[in-house]
Simulated assay, not measured.
Amino acid sequence: VLRITPKGSRFFAHPSSLTMRQYKKGKEPDAQDDEVFEQLRAVRLRLSRKYRVPPYAIFTDRTLHEMAQQRPHTKGEMLAISGVGEVKYRKFGRYFTALFKDGE
């Protein structure tokens, strides 16, 4: 069953523009990206055990693949990755950006 939320009702009453996130097709992963991806998975596993949540609740594989390709160093770069929002960045971001800062 679908329902219209109050926000949806307001939209229908007073239409305005909508914004949607557009996902870009990334480059093909290479062996180095695969190695970084595995390191990111290890960090995610450690955090999932610490917080007692499933690994996908930290970040999905898709998000980790994008991180492996983009290698974010700053908050802005992390927030540009699909699946990373303010809350997850504040809670987990430092663990993942540290991996890239250490690798320089």
Rank of each mutant, 00 (worst) to 15 (best):
L2M: 10
I4H: 06
I4Q: 09
P6D: 13
G8E: 14
G8F: 09
G8S: 10
R10Y: 07
F11L: 15
A13P: 00
A13E: 15
A13I: 11
H14K: 14
H14L: 11
P15I: 08
P15D: 08
S16E: 09
L18I: 15
L18P: 01
T19M: 11
Q22E: 10
K24R: 13
K25H: 09
G26L: 06
G26A: 10
P29F: 04
A31V: 12
A31D: 15
Q32K: 14
V36E: 00
A42L: 12
A42S: 14
A42Q: 13
V43L: 11
V43S: 05
V43C: 06
R44F: 06
L45S: 12
L45E: 14
K50A: 09
R52P: 00
P54I: 09
P54S: 11
P55D: 10
I58N: 03
I58R: 04
F59L: 04
T63V: 09
E66W: 00
A68P: 02
Q69I: 04
R71S: 01
H73S: 09
H73R: 15
M78P: 00
A80K: 08
G85W: 08
K88E: 03
Y89S: 06
K91V: 07
F92N: 03
R94E: 14
Y95H: 15
F96T: 02
L99F: 02
L99N: 03
L99W: 03
D102N: 13
